[in-house]
Design a protein around this nucleic acid. Structure first.
Lengths: 317, 317
DNA sequence: GGCTGTTACGCTTCGCGTAATCATG
DNA sequence: CATGATTACGCGAAGCGTAACAGCC
């Protein structure tokens, strides 16, 4: 049994059972992959694939199981490669972070700047995307970890998420806008104006409006606070953005009002994939983001299991 | 990176860093192992071993990490091999059970007999030993699962244990023994006679005696209820054994009295190693042992983790 | 010298790519 | 006939064992 065989197997499955595409992915030729698959099946003594003629169209029941453990083995090999890189590039390793726009721009910026001060050779790669694409990147092992908004969808079992920051929200509008001088910012007051909202934070906001029986004019949903601010300052409506994305000194064409009384804060979470190896640099960086993320916390997060020793009710002998 | 390299690495470590012994274990020659280790280190780019001259005396920090993931990878490969065997020997696969004497003789006997009735080709291998050796066998993956007494030592994180049976205890003595006619079997009454006890169940028994301020004459500690019964029927003392090990009809040279009022029952547990694959036969057998051990229960036992989504206290933004 | 681990060398097998072949719509 | 899997074959690398070599009680 060879890692290469498992790798060919996994890749072929992930390429929708297309051997040619798997070969391209692995920088090899179809015959090479085909042979490995055949050898793997021969060694196991049963078919991994369901075939329609010569084409692969699915996995056998045993194939599914083999796939699961092949992934485990290949993931372990990947982690060993990471350990190797980590050891050789002490402190200079690239940290790959899957994150959203707001986090990249506002939450991570300072941390990365500070980190570079401490480790001038550190490198970063930000995989920017939506909340769900962040989860996908983490799950696929494309990023060392994810920094994203806590999502309401229950987490995959292979991902652990740990909240570490609350982001209160503000409403911003161009100077002189009526909302800025209103006695009190209520839902009713907000609903009078076209709303520019973030796709991610929309959920709770919209629910509140609907619960209050208010119909709202969403002029724009964007991922990017900068875009939202631009539209607001152009007078297209009022934008609901994280407070962290508004600066009194630089956003001279905007004014902000606190919304803490109206909406509960957004929650920033760290996303880690179980069974993944965190490089020294990644661990150091996490500790910088939040002092709670020290080595032991992270370890216990990744190892966390409920102790299955509760006795329940026993049938007597 | 090759599985073979990891295997050589792991084996060398497990053979106390003795390459020759690792070679013998792997049915190979020292040069072959030596070369694999060298190649592995070369590919990783750092030393796995701490050396004293040419001899290996320990692992580097990185070596420890690599060892951990190498074990994961090799375990996955092992599981794939098991899936293969399982698929090819549908229903005829050998089930390897690590267990103690009492469980082998009394708890498993009926279940195995019944299982053979249903699957006449089923094979079993009982690795008999002490409670702690059962755990070792399970942890090392030498057995499909363990059936043993719940031990007071907290379980390894890599093992899940699930109680499924309570074994009440009785005291047995030769016919005519004074304990059999006493009004009531109390600790004081028991302490009058030499005690023959099981090493495993001793713990609680002895604690009770000591708590009551009684000094006890332990004439014998044995693992084996048959041995204990023999000594008791020879008049050497009274034996405390699981009720299941005494039969009124066949143990004609002995009489028993219930001890349920005195000692809490022993608890039989199933021991499973996390990250291990259970064969179809093993799953079927577990379901036979206890209806609670169906496929879903076992799966959830092995997957059990605490959901790490509790928000704790958050620092505000 | 007996215990280690390592190099040298020849043999076999493995894994790959190129090119030709086979199946299927 | 176009697409996609497979077989045929030759080359280079990998993995092994035997034998010889090198450090350390």
């Amino acid at each position: 049994m060879k890692l290469r065989q498992m790798q060919c197997f996994i890749t072929t499955v992930d390429c929708d059972f297309n051997v040619a595409r798997a070969a391209a992915t692995l920088h090899a030729t179809p015959p090479a992959i085909s042979k490995q698959l055949r050898l793997f099946e021969a060694e196991l003594g049963f078919a991994l694939f369901l075939r329609a003629g010569a084409k692969f169209v699915g996995l056998t029941r045993s194939g599914e199981k083999v796939l699961r453990w092949s992934r485990t083995a290949l993931n372990a090999a990947k982690n060993i490669r990471k350990i190797s890189e980590d050891a050789r590039t002490e402190g200079r390793g690239k940290v790959v972070i899957a994150t959203t726009y707001t986090h990249a721009r506002y939450v991570l910026l300072e941390a990365i700047a500070e980190f570079r001060k401490r480790f001038p050779l550190a490198q970063f790669n930000l995989l920017q995307g939506t909340v769900s694409s962040v989860r996908k990147s983490v799950l696929a092992g494309k990023a060392d970890f994810g920094i994203s908004l806590e999502s309401s969808v229950p987490c995959d079992v292979d991902i652990v998420s740990q909240p570490f920051l609350e982001l209160s929200q503000v409403v911003v509008a161009k100077p002189g806008h009526a909302i800025l001088t209103a006695d009190c910012v209520t839902l009713e007051e907000l609903a009078k104006y076209p709303i520019i909202a973030n796709a991610a934070s929309m959920e709770e906001v919209d629910r509140k409006f609907r619960d209050a029986g208010l119909s709202v004019d969403y002029v724009l949903e964007a991922r990017d606070a900068e875009v939202m601010k631009s539209y607001a300052s152009a007078g297209l409506g009022v934008a609901i953005i994280p407070a962290i994305a508004y600066s009194e000194t630089t956003d001279t064409l905007l004014r902000a009002r606190d919304l803490r009384q109206l909406f509960s804060p957004l929650v920033s979470s760290l996303l880690l994939r179980r069974e993944s190896y965190l490089t020294r640099s990644a661990l150091d960086f996490l500790e910088l983001i939040s002092p709670r993320f020290n080595y032991d916390t992270i370890r216990s997060l990744l190892d966390e299991r409920s102790s299955a020793n509760d006795c329940h009710s026993l049938q007597s002998a």
